[in-house]
Computed example of a mutant assay.
Amino acid sequence: MKHNKHWLAAALAAALFAGLFTGCGGSSGATATSAAAVQETAGSAMEDAANGTDGGAGAADLDSGALTPQDSRKIIYNATLWLETKQFDQASADLLEAASQAGAYVQSSESSGSAEQGNRSVYYTLRVPAENYSEFLNAAAQAANLIRRSESSQDVTAEYVDLEARLASLEQQRQRLDELAAQAESLEDLLAIESQRSEVQYQIESYTGQMNVLQDQISYSTVDVYLDEVTELTPQSTSFVSRVGSAFRGSWNGFVSVVQELVIGLIYLLPFLVVAAVVIALVVLLARRAAKKRPQPVPPKRPDGDNSGQPPKYTQLK
């Protein structure tokens, strides 16, 4: 990137070379700014830009009256809300309406669950204008049952003032380098000035990007909202009895959910169970038929010639 800027500076210098050559008339006795002097001046400008100063006065003048009042402090606000509701569609619509009334917009969203099972949930990342931040939080809390609310803030006044001072100083250095470029009487001087000016321009663009990001975070607060669909709302009271009741309801709901899942699983397995039962019944039936057709073994002959299979009868001697 730096080489491209140097080539561009060289091209511009070549375009201006003819004018400089004609204006100078080729006289070697004219008083010209030496390359060393130009680089020293430009280097001093770059040093001032890097330090955020302008000859020891620019940044100090800016800091002396910038953002010192308490009401002008630059603060970034963030919040997270956890909500629950039995009427998911209505609560979601009310939440988005509250965001619209506050001038907010949805930066991202993510949803899951189904209405049939009653376990829908949605997650919003909202960007709310800072002046409507508190008003929106109160309106969002009315859209559903508020379970938890978390807020944080970050004071970035010092960082903001520092960026402003550096940008103001860099702008002044760029103007100074432009003036030096207009007074340059040699190609070497012009190239040195353009090289330093490219560095200043790069820093201006970098600090401007940081300033834009910071200003966006200050102007629009970030609010994350979690909305869950439930069958029973969490009670606001934290008494022992209410906690026991809530735990029992949660346990019962979990038991019912497990039973429902088992029934659904059995329904899915029902065709396989029917086929397995038919196969087992056929195997048992064929086994029985094969057992009936199999010839019965003939009992061995007894010494007394009785093959009836009955035990021999003994005559009692008198």
Rank of each mutant, 00 (worst) to 15 (best):
residue 239 S to W: 03
residue 95 L to C: 05
residue 101 Q to E: 11
residue 105 Y to G: 00
residue 42 A to G: 01
residue 107 Q to G: 09
residue 126 L to Q: 06
residue 84 E to K: 01
residue 64 S to D: 09
residue 18 A to W: 15
residue 257 S to M: 07
residue 115 A to N: 04
residue 260 Q to K: 08
residue 181 A to S: 13
residue 270 L to A: 07
residue 156 V to F: 09
residue 44 S to N: 09
residue 64 S to E: 06
residue 68 T to M: 01
residue 227 L to M: 02
residue 24 C to A: 04
residue 47 E to Q: 12
residue 2 K to F: 14
residue 227 L to S: 01
residue 142 Q to A: 15
residue 179 E to T: 15
residue 222 T to F: 10
residue 94 D to A: 05
residue 52 G to K: 01
residue 288 R to H: 06
residue 147 I to G: 06
residue 193 I to P: 00
residue 273 L to Y: 14
residue 91 A to I: 14
residue 161 V to F: 02
residue 318 K to F: 09
residue 94 D to E: 13
residue 56 G to Y: 13
residue 160 Y to D: 06
residue 312 P to L: 08
residue 169 S to P: 02
residue 274 V to K: 08
residue 182 A to E: 13
residue 300 P to Q: 13
residue 185 E to I: 03
residue 245 G to R: 03
residue 52 G to Q: 00
residue 220 Y to E: 01
residue 137 L to D: 02
residue 314 Y to Q: 11
residue 185 E to N: 06
residue 30 A to F: 05
residue 72 S to D: 08
residue 278 V to G: 15
residue 243 R to C: 03
residue 205 E to C: 00
residue 222 T to Y: 03
residue 183 Q to T: 07
residue 52 G to F: 06
residue 299 P to M: 09
residue 310 Q to K: 07
residue 263 V to F: 15
residue 100 S to V: 04
residue 31 T to A: 14
residue 138 N to R: 15
residue 71 D to K: 10
residue 178 D to K: 09
residue 71 D to V: 01
residue 132 N to P: 03
residue 75 I to R: 09
residue 98 A to E: 06
residue 140 A to M: 10
residue 14 A to F: 14
residue 61 D to L: 14
residue 188 E to L: 05
residue 291 A to M: 03
residue 230 V to F: 05
residue 141 A to P: 04
residue 44 S to W: 11
residue 298 V to K: 10
residue 119 N to Y: 09
residue 120 R to Q: 13
residue 278 V to K: 14
residue 16 L to N: 13
residue 228 D to N: 08
residue 253 N to V: 02
residue 169 S to Q: 05
residue 83 L to Q: 00
residue 245 G to C: 05
residue 86 K to W: 01
residue 130 A to P: 00
residue 176 R to F: 11
residue 164 E to C: 10
residue 9 A to E: 11
residue 112 S to L: 11
residue 259 V to T: 06
residue 252 W to M: 13
residue 75 I to C: 09
residue 38 V to T: 04
residue 39 Q to M: 06
residue 242 S to N: 11
residue 24 C to K: 05
residue 237 S to T: 06
residue 126 L to G: 03
residue 191 L to N: 02
residue 297 P to S: 08
residue 199 E to R: 13
residue 141 A to S: 15
residue 191 L to D: 01
residue 251 S to Y: 10
residue 247 A to E: 08
residue 65 G to S: 05
residue 230 V to I: 10
residue 278 V to T: 09
residue 92 S to K: 13
residue 124 Y to H: 04
residue 258 V to Q: 10
residue 219 S to M: 02
residue 269 L to E: 11
residue 272 F to I: 12
residue 67 L to M: 13
residue 249 R to V: 12
residue 279 V to I: 11
residue 247 A to M: 05
residue 230 V to C: 00
residue 114 S to G: 02
residue 153 S to Y: 12
residue 303 P to T: 04
residue 177 L to K: 00
residue 109 S to R: 08
residue 69 P to Y: 00
residue 97 E to D: 10
residue 166 R to G: 05
residue 16 L to K: 15
residue 33 T to I: 04
residue 10 A to C: 08
residue 2 K to T: 10
residue 192 A to Y: 12
residue 273 L to S: 01
residue 61 D to P: 00
residue 33 T to M: 08
residue 56 G to C: 05
residue 231 T to C: 12
residue 76 I to D: 01
residue 116 E to H: 04
residue 86 K to N: 00
residue 198 S to Q: 11
residue 208 T to V: 03
residue 186 S to T: 09
residue 282 L to Q: 07
residue 288 R to P: 03
residue 195 S to I: 10
residue 24 C to Q: 03
residue 220 Y to I: 06
residue 255 F to H: 04
residue 73 R to F: 14
residue 260 Q to V: 01
